[in-house]
């Protein structure tokens, strides 16, 4: 694989992979390590991956790597790392940054309480904004199963949010 195509491959998929591993419960810096690992695995095998299956391969690998990383992080850390080391947007005020940090921390806590299968479909639907067909494809499940999982995931998420809504920075505004 040429250097140019490696660059375009990484550029095309990095953010997606990072968001997936981050959404699966890793801190920003652990997500960086995991994303790098995922892309490294993918670039090694790229010649054997059909072009239309790249994203699917990356997603499957990202899920596996994130699960391993979470287990590893649990073993080596008692206190979780600060979640706020992502690149801040320059046009955000400190209050907005704090609000976003709190919102993300709450989201990660809530997602962390959800069963893994539901968490994944919710992540794909709400953060990646994928349609059911694409979610079913990435998850390797029938369309109907994806639809029922997503419905269940949304219900579960709302219940969890209701219980923790006092932490929701946007609820205070409303």
């Amino acid at each position: 694989m040429s250097q140019r195509s490696i660059e375009s491959f990484v550029s095309q998929h990095y953010a997606f992979v990072w968001r997936i591993v981050r959404g699966l419960g890793l801190t920003p810096s652990d997500a960086e390590d995991a994303a790098q690992q995922v892309l490294m695995i993918a670039t090694r095998k790229l010649d054997s991956i059909a072009e239309d299956r790249e994203r699917s391969f990356l997603y499957g690998t990202a899920v596996r790597v994130a699960n391993n990383a979470r287990r590893s992080v649990r073993r080596r850390r008692e206190v979780p790392e600060d979640d706020s080391d992502t690149a801040p947007s320059s046009d955000q005020s400190p209050e907005q940054r704090s609000e976003l940090t709190n919102a993300r921390a709450l989201l990660h806590d809530l997602m962390g309480q959800m069963p893994e299968k539901l968490r994944r479909v919710l992540l794909l639907a709400e953060v990646e904004e994928l349609e059911l067909r694409a979610i079913a494809d990435l998850e390797g499940i029938p369309h109907g199963t994806a639809a029922s999982r997503l419905r269940l995931a949304r219900e579960r998420f709302k219940k969890l949010l209701l219980a923790e809504n006092h932490r929701n920075p946007y609820a205070r505004e409303a």
Partner: peptide
């Protein structure tokens, strides 16, 4: 709650990887 959920997910969508992460990868 739907609106609040949507805001939380939007916050996640806006989150960018650490600076220089892609280059390091």
């Amino acid at each position: 709650l739907d609106k609040l959920s949507a805001q939380l997910f939007a916050a996640a969508r806006e989150e960018a990887p650490p600076e220089g992460a892609e280059e390091r990868a």
